[in-house]
Amino acid sequence: MKYSLCADIMFVAVGEKGPVWPDTDGIIEGMKLAKKNGLTGIEMFDLEGRDLDRIAAAGKELGIEIRACVSAGASLLGDPAKTEELVSLFTQSVPKAKQIGCGRLILNAADYAKDLSAEEVLAAMEDALKRLAPIAEKEGVTVLVEPLTGGFFTSSKQAFGLIKN
């Protein structure tokens, strides 16, 4: 089994307005921390606003793989009114993820359509994933669905049920 740490979580700060996520330097520090502790990979959140070339170079230099990162629009899974936006943002995230050698993009359902029934939300998720599958397959990336606490999913089992369909 390959273990990794989420560099964003390790270096998040709390400011007056809530979490302050690390910049490029913070991600690279996360890579160094992973290396120092015998890990061979990290995960990271946002691809936006970071120097992806520096991150890619640091990963190669340190021998640290970026195992997963969060796709732009990740939280839109489960809202049929936002499926088009999710597909567009995912499509934009793919080349950025590949630029840093990351072949896994994370989605979640934090901002699902709360006015819909559970069955309707799941149907929206299935529709979105069916639309993302050909993009992911063509680009050689894997879509990961993360069952976040506080989002739509109440258990990992529920998320596994979605993937089985």
Results as ranks from 00 to 15, higher is better:
V12W: 03
L105P: 08
L116D: 04
S4K: 08
D79R: 04
C6T: 14
A128Y: 03
C6S: 15
Y112H: 09
G38W: 06
G15H: 07
R104S: 12
A128C: 03
Y112P: 03
S4L: 14
K32H: 09
P19S: 13
T40H: 14
V141T: 11
K157T: 00
D25T: 08
A118P: 04
L148T: 05
A7E: 13
C69A: 15
A34G: 12
I64R: 09
Q158M: 09
A57G: 02
D127E: 11
E65P: 08
T91V: 04
F152H: 00
D53C: 02
R50A: 10
A56H: 05
A124P: 06
L5K: 06
K32V: 04
F45E: 15
G38N: 09
T142G: 07
D79G: 10
I28Q: 05
A74P: 03
D111K: 13
S93K: 05
F90N: 08
S75D: 13
P80Y: 04
G103A: 15
C6R: 07
I66F: 14
Y112N: 07
L47Y: 12
Q99N: 12
L39V: 08
F153N: 06
D53N: 06
D79P: 08
L86I: 08
Y112M: 05
S155H: 00
E146P: 00
W21S: 11
E16N: 07
C69L: 14
C69H: 09
A7K: 10
A133G: 00
A113M: 03
L52H: 05
A133R: 07
I163G: 00
D8Y: 15
L129D: 03
A74W: 09
G101Y: 15
A110H: 07
G18H: 05
G78T: 10
V121G: 02
R54D: 06
L52A: 05
A58G: 01
G38H: 09
P19T: 09
Y112V: 01
D53H: 01
P95D: 08
S88A: 10
G59V: 11
E48P: 09
A57E: 05
F45K: 12
L132R: 01
A13K: 11
N108C: 10
N165V: 15
A124W: 01
T24F: 05
T83I: 14
P80N: 10
K35I: 01
R54T: 03
